[in-house]
Design a protein around this nucleic acid. Structure first.
Length: 208
DNA sequence: GCGACAG
DNA sequence: ATCTTGTCGC
């Protein structure tokens, strides 16, 4: 039903080009980030459990959103599967920066899920992925850049890939990569996987 | 045709 | 992502 030759994918490519055209690669400056957020999703068949985690100083809170996720995972089009529920999960949270599990600019059309969410919500986002989707790794002055079409679109640090989503730049992701894999993403991952196990959860607001 | 391919 | 035991390594 969702073949590569499907006209829908051609349409989605047009959508991604529009998103890429509207990306703002401005410098955020991690020192200005007081409220940091992250989102991740876990699955149980067709049931998706998205968790948005918000951190401000020592205060950490999170919100769980459960919902049907039927669109399949297609490399390059992850946003169609996870962006809807992620956006729903982050709803109501005001953050200086949102970390998304996946790529941002380090995408064939510079339109990874972190970029799509950032542009649609007009907020600063950064994509952090556990594996590569596209590009070559080129070392320069100790930094391993992800290069696509001769352009530096992100960096690789350890086993993770960092790339700007929206309203962030290469310097921001380089700084973030030097801090190591964000604890808040580990929390989001852990909570989402925990949520799908707890069959009797209330799918809403909780605080630590 | 062959290899690559976020979660 | 998810299915899954023991096991190699820091």
């Amino acid at each position: 039903m969702w073949g590569k030759e499907d006209y829908l994918l051609n349409f989605l490519i047009l959508f991604q080009r529009l998103i890429a055209k509207n990306v703002k690669l401005t410098h955020l400056g991690l020192e200005n980030v007081k409220t940091l957020c992250a989102v991740d999703v876990a699955y149980d068949r067709e049931e998706g459990y998205a968790v948005a985690v918000k951190q401000e100083g020592d205060k950490i809170e999170y919100k769980i959103t459960k919902g049907k996720v039927t669109f399949p995972y297609i490399p390059g089009f992850l946003f169609m599967r996870e962006a809807p529920i992620m956006i729903k999960a982050i709803e109501g949270y005001q953050c200086d920066l949102l970390l998304v599990d996946g790529h941002g600019l380090a995408h064939p059309r510079k339109s990874g899920i972190a970029t799509v969410i950032g542009v649609l919500l007009d907020i600063p986002t950064m994509g952090i992925a556990k594996s590569k989707l596209a590009g070559d790794i080129v070392e320069e002055n100790g930094i391993y850049y992800v290069v696509i079409n001769g352009e530096k679109v992100g960096v690789k640090a350890g086993k993770y890939f960092y790339s700007p989503g929206n309203k962030t730049d290469l310097q921001d992701v380089i700084e973030m990569s030097k801090r190591g894999y964000p604890e808040i993403l580990k929390i989001a991952d852990k909570l989402s996987k925990q949520a799908k196990k707890d069959k009797n959860m209330s799918s809403d607001y909780k605080i630590w």
